[in-house]
């Protein structure tokens, strides 16, 4: 059952913390409080469209009537690997280097 925004959208601190986790933002406690207020206010303005009856109206994702573009599958030039890796904060043996991903020791 999809959730429906009501007239009084209210974004709580725990909503903000959950969304910050999804968005990979390490917010300060002050930012969490600010965003709870501001998102509530901004989404409050959007209730004018959430209450419109638009059943049967198709969505528009692309404003012009274009369809998928295909091209021949041919080998072309791409960006130089060393040049791309030179722009990375950390690289090793031709790859991007990152801190550990899983819980391994």
């Amino acid at each position: 059952m999809p959730k429906q925004p009501t007239e009084q959208v209210s974004i709580t601190r725990s909503d903000v913390e959950h969304v910050a986790m999804l968005a990979r933002l390490a917010l300060t406690p002050e930012e969490v409080g600010e965003f709870a207020e501001q998102l509530t206010a901004i989404l409050g303005h959007a209730t004018d469209i959430s209450s419109l009856d638009l059943v049967g109206v198709p969505t528009t994702a692309h404003p012009l009537p274009v369809t998928n573009v295909l091209r021949e599958d041919v080998i072309g030039t791409s960006l130089d690997r060393d040049e791309v890796l030179a722009a990375a904060p950390s690289a090793e043996e031709g790859r991007f280097r990152v801190p550990r991903i899983m819980g391994e020791a």
């Binding site: 999809p2 959730k3 429906q4 925004p5 974004i11 909503d15 959950h18 969304v19 999804l22 968005a23 998102l39 989404l43 959007a46 469209i49 959430s50 419109l52 638009l54 109206v57 198709p58 969505t59 528009t60 994702a61």
Partner: peptide, 19 residues
């Protein structure tokens, strides 16, 4: 991220695309 999060997609993004 909130507007696209589970359960809200159609009510927010979908509705906006219908507008």
């Amino acid at each position: 991220t909130y507007a696209l999060s589970a359960g809200f997609y159609d009510a927010y993004y979908g509705q906006a695309q219908r507008v």
